[in-house]
């Protein structure tokens, strides 16, 4: 009596949309890590003086670099939104016998996001 164990197909994550979304989310980490490395390189270049930094900035203007940043941004958004949506799953907040509606936990995330982005923009552009 030997039960049959079905083999794991290499493309299992292509079979269903939710699995694909999940793999994309996992894959997004690669881009975000790459972005962090570029960011660290930028700091290194700044420390090396104006010429090095200007050269680095020129490299960033290449179509490839721009494409990379767009893709990285999209993945960062995917990641951020997934985690915001997740908040009510991980945090069960109760009011008596009722769960606080998910939106009440998700919306503050977005509000905080917009406010913090605004603060950063103000410091960078205006401050």
């Amino acid at each position: 009596m030997k039960p049959y164990v079905r083999p794991i197909s290499a493309g299992w994550w292509l079979h269903r949309m939710p699995y694909l979304r999940f793999m994309l989310r996992e894959f997004s980490a690669v881009f975000i890590a790459a972005y962090v490395i570029i960011f660290l390189v930028m700091i290194l270049r700044i420390s090396q003086g104006q010429a090095a930094y200007e050269a680095f900035r020129a490299d960033l203007q290449s179509p490839l670099a721009i494409l990379f940043h767009v893709v990285a941004l999209l993945f960062a958004l995917l990641h951020t939104i997934s985690w915001f949506q997740l908040t009510p799953k991980a945090m069960a907040v109760w009011k008596g016998e009722e769960r606080v509606p998910p939106a009440m936990l998700i919306i503050p995330n977005y509000v905080a996001w917009v406010v913090l982005s605004g603060v950063v923009a103000w410091i960078v552009l205006g401050g």
């Binding site: 269903r16 939710p18 699995y19 999940f22 996992e26 997740l86 799953k89």
Partner: peptide, 9 residues
């Protein structure tokens, strides 16, 4: 758990 989330679906 890597939060695929399909269990709940």
């Amino acid at each position: 758990c890597t939060l695929v989330g399909e269990c709940s679906v």
